[in-house]
Write a protein that binds this DNA or RNA. Structure first.
Length: 586
RNA sequence: CGGGGUAUGGCGCAGCUUGGUAGCGCGUCCGCUUUGGGAGCGGAAGGCCGCCGGUUCAAGUCCGGCUACCCCGACCA
C-alpha cells in the first residue's frame, strides 16, 4: 500500500513554465517525473511504477509471442559501429566517449550491430532459425532538439527486437508475428493507435509500418483514407499518377518575355495579364517549378539534384530526404549557382536539366508531371518563360521522385478517395531490414544444401518511455491524469476526508481489505489536509477508481467514483470492499 | 544549425522603461481556528537577482561579452 503521508511526492498547482505538451505538464505537475538535464528525466515513485507497468506489458507480449529477451550494454565499443559505417554516419547524434586509455566508446543509440554479431557469434545453421530476440534498454541519442518531455529525449528506453530468417518467406512470418504482438501490446496500453505505411529510412530495408498514437502534439504527419482504410506516413505516400495525355495536336511550345517574375505568384499574375487563356485563368498548378538542392552523400561527396513539380506544391523536405536516404539534402547556395552558370535563378527550366543536358544535373519529376501534360516553366534566360512545354514531347527527365507536399484532400493512391491528414506519436516501428547488417557484419548460416546464405533480418521497435507519454496524451482530461487500469500506479485511490478519527480508521481498514484482495491501493492518509486538496490531488494523480471515506460514513456509506466517467456510487461500508474489488476486476 | 524568447527563494511570476533597503502568490516550518472542492489569522525559514566585465557614490535595473534553458523549423523510438 502506498501512503500519501509518506510518499515521496510533491504535486504542483501550476504548470511548469518549460512544458508545452499536456503529457509533459501533467507528469511534472503530478510528481511523476523531474527534468535532470535537457531531454533527460528522473522518474519519481509514481512515475516509475507506471513506467514499469508499461515495460511489463511490453515484455509479457514479447514473451507470449515466443521472442526471447537478452540484454546488451548501453556502453559499447566502437568497432562494430565502424564496420557498418555508423560511427561516422550517426554524426553528432552519437554520444561518444573515451576510456582511460583513450579508446573510443559510445552510448548505444540503437543496437542492430550488437544483435547481428551476437547471432553470428553463436549460430551457424539454418536449423537454428528462425530466431527472434529482443531487449529493453536505455538508448542515447544526442538529439539536436529534445522536446516535449518524455516524447523526445536524449535518453529514452526502447524495446528493440530483431528477427533472423533464412529467406523472405520466413522474414514475412516473423514480421507478421511482431505486428500481431504490437497490436496486442498497444491495445493493452489503452492506446487507439493507427498502423501506417512508412519509410524504413536510414536503417535501410524494405517493407515498413509505424504504429502512431493520433494526437495534435505528435511529430509525425500521416494521411488516412476513410474509404478504403489506406493509412500512411506522409513520407511514404505514393502519388497516384494521372493517366498520360495524348499530345497530338497540342500547341507548340513558345518562349515569352516575362520580366520580373522570379516567383510562381508573379509569373501567374503576369501570365493572366499578358497571355490570358480563353477557357480559364492560369493558376500555379499550370506552372512547373524546378527546385535545385545539393545532396550530401554518405561517402562525403556532394551532388546537385533538381526536382520538378507543379508550382502550387511546395517541396516537402522530409519526403525528399526519405526518398533520397541515406543521402541528406542541403540548400543550393549562391556559390553553387556560381559553379553552375547554366542555371538561371528563378528561371530554371527543363531545357538545361538532366544528366545529358547543359547543366548535367540529375532531374527528377513529380509523378503528376506525366507525358502529354503542358506547362509554363523557366526558359533558362532571365525574364523569360516557356509556355505549352509538353512533357514527353519537349522535355524528359531522369526519373520521378516523391518530394511534393501531401495535402489533406489529395487522392488516395489505393482507391482514389479523399485523404485526411492528422498527426501522431510514433510509438512503434516494424520493418523488414533485409540483409544490410547481416551483409556488413557477415552473418551467414549453412542452408540445407550446405551452402552459406546470408540471414535476412527484421527490426521492431517500441518506445517504452515514450509510450508512457503517449498513454497520457491518449487518456488525460481537464482534471489531470487518467490512467488505464493496467498501467496505473495503483488501482484505487482511497481518500479519507475530515478530522473524525473514525474516518481514518475506516479508510485504513478498507485499504487493508483491498490490498488483501490483491487490489493496489494508494491511500491518502494525510491528517489536517482539507478535502478540496485531497480531491484535486486524487484527480490529478489519476488512479482509475477513487474511494472517498468521509461525511457519508456517519450514515454508513462510502463513495466510489470512476475517475474517467466521473460516475459516483454510495455504497454501504460493509459492502465497500467487495464493491471496489468488483470494479477493479471489471 | 537558422529564427524567437527567457534567466529573480522549491514552483509560478512582478520589479528593469525612470539605478537608491529584493517583492507577490503557491509551497515549506511553528501556533490557533477550520475540514466535501486547491481554508483563515498570526509568526518564521529560505535568494551571489545565470556568469564575467564595464559605467556609477550606488546596478536585479544601464552598457558589452559569455553561458544555460525553453519554444518554432530541418533528424528519429
Amino acid at each position: 500500500m502506498l501512503r500519501m503521508s509518506t510518499l515521496f511526492l510533491r504535486t504542483l498547482r501550476d504548470d511548469p513554465a518549460d512544458a508545452e505538451v499536456p503529457s509533459h505538464k501533467l507528469l511534472v505537475r503530478a510528481g511523476y517525473i523531474r527534468r535532470a538535464a535537457p531531454g533527460v528525466y528522473s522518474w519519481l515513485p509514481l512515475g516509475w511504477k507506471v513506467y514499469r507497468n508499461v515495460e511489463r506489458i511490453v515484455r509479457e507480449e514479447m514473451d507470449a509471442a515466443g521472442f526471447q529477451e537478452v540484454h546488451f550494454p548501453a556502453l559499447l565499443p566502437r568497432e562494430p559501429y565502424e564496420q557498418t559505417g555508423r560511427w561516422t554516419e550517426y554524426g553528432d547524434n552519437l554520444f561518444r566517449l573515451k576510456d582511460r586509455r583513450q579508446v573510443d566508446m559510445l552510448l548505444g543509440p540503437t543496437h542492430e550491430e550488437m544483435f547481428t554479431l551476437l547471432v553470428k557469434d553463436l549460430y551457424s545453421s539454418y536449423k537454428d532459425l528462425p530466431l527472434a530476440i529482443y531487449q529493453i534498454q536505455t538508448k542515447y541519442r544526442d538529439e539536436a532538439r529534445p522536446r516535449a518531455g518524455l516524447l523526445r529525449g536524449r535518453e529514452f528506453v526502447k524495446k528493440d527486437s530483431y528477427s533472423n530468417d533464412v529467406d523472405d518467406a520466413g522474414l514475412q512470418r516473423s514480421y507478421d508475428a511482431h505486428r500481431d504482438a504490437y497490436v496486442k501490446t498497444f491495445g493493452r496500453l489503452g492506446l487507439d493507435f493507427v498502423i501506417v505505411s512508412a519509410m524504413s529510412g536510414a536503417m535501410g530495408g524494405s517493407k515498413s509500418e509505424e504504429f502512431l498514437q493520433p494526437t495534435p502534439v505528435g511529430e509525425d504527419t500521416f494521411v488516412r483514407c476513410a474509404g478504403c482504410g489506406y493509412a500512411a506516413n506522409v513520407e511514404a505516400v505514393i502519388t497516384p499518377a494521372p493517366p498520360a495525355v495524348d499530345f497530338e495536336g497540342a500547341s507548340a511550345a513558345h518562349v515569352e518575355d516575362t520580366p520580373d517574375t522570379p516567383t510562381i505568384e508573379t509569373l501567374v499574375a503576369l501570365a493572366n495579364e499578358r497571355f490570358p487563356r480563353a477557357d480559364r485563368p492560369w493558376t500555379a498548378a499550370d506552372t512547373l517549378k524546378n527546385v535545385v538542392v545539393m545532396l550530401a552523400l554518405p561517402d562525403g561527396t556532394r551532388e546537385p539534384l533538381c526536382v520538378g513539380l507543379p508550382g502550387d506544391r511546395e517541396v516537402d523536405l522530409k519526403r525528399l530526404e526519405a526518398a533520397l536516404a541515406p543521402a541528406e539534402v542541403e540548400p543550393f547556395t549562391e556559390a553553387d549557382f556560381a559553379k553552375n552558370p547554366s542555371l538561371v535563378k528563378g528561371y530554371i527550366g527543363p531545357g538545361v536539366l538532366g544528366e545529358k543536358k547543359a547543366s548535367g544535373i540529375r532531374y527528377l519529376l513529380d509523378p503528376r508531371v506525366v507525358s502529354g501534360t503542358a506547362w509554363i516553366t523557366g526558359a533558362d534566360e532571365p525574364g523569360r518563360h516557356v509556355f505549352d512545354l509538353v512533357a514527353g514531347r519537349d522535355f524528359h527527365a531522369d526519373g520521378t521522385i516523391e518530394a511534393a507536399e501531401v495535402r489533406a484532400g489529395d487522392a488516395c493512391p489505393q482507391c482514389g478517395g479523399t485523404l485526411h491528414q492528422a498527426r501522431g506519436i510514433e510509438i512503434g516501428h516494424i520493418f523488414q531490414l533485409g540483409r544490410k547488417y547481416a551483409d556488413a557484419l557477415g552473418l551467414q548460416v549453412l542452408d540445407e544444401n550446405g551452402k552459406l546464405v546470408t540471414v535476412t533480418m527484421g527490426s521492431y521497435g517500441i518506445g517504452v518511455s515514450r509510450a508512457v507519454a503517449a498513454v497520457v496524451e491518449a487518456t488525460y482530461d481537464e482534471l489531470g491524469l487518467c490512467w488505464p487500469r493496467e498501467v496505473a500506479p495503483a488501482d484505487v485511490h482511497v481518500v479519507a476526508t475530515g478530522k473524525d478519527e473514525a474516518v481514518f480508521t475506516a479508510a485504513e481498514q478498507l485499504s487493508q481489505q483491498l490490498e488483501a484482495a490483491g487490489v493496489r491501493v494508494l491511500y491518502d492518509d494525510r491528517p489536517k489536509v482539507s478535502p478540496g486538496v485531497k480531491f484535486k490531488d486524487a484527480e490529478l494523480l489519476g488512479m482509475p477508481t477513487i474511494v472517498v471515506v468521509g461525511k457519508g460514513l456517519a450514515e454508513g456509506t462510502i463513495e466510489v467514483r470512476d475517475r474517467r466517467s466521473g460516475e459516483k456510487a454510495e455504497v454501504p461500508v460493509a459492502d465497500a470492499a467487495g464493491y471496489v474489488v468488483a470494479q477493479v476486476r471489471g
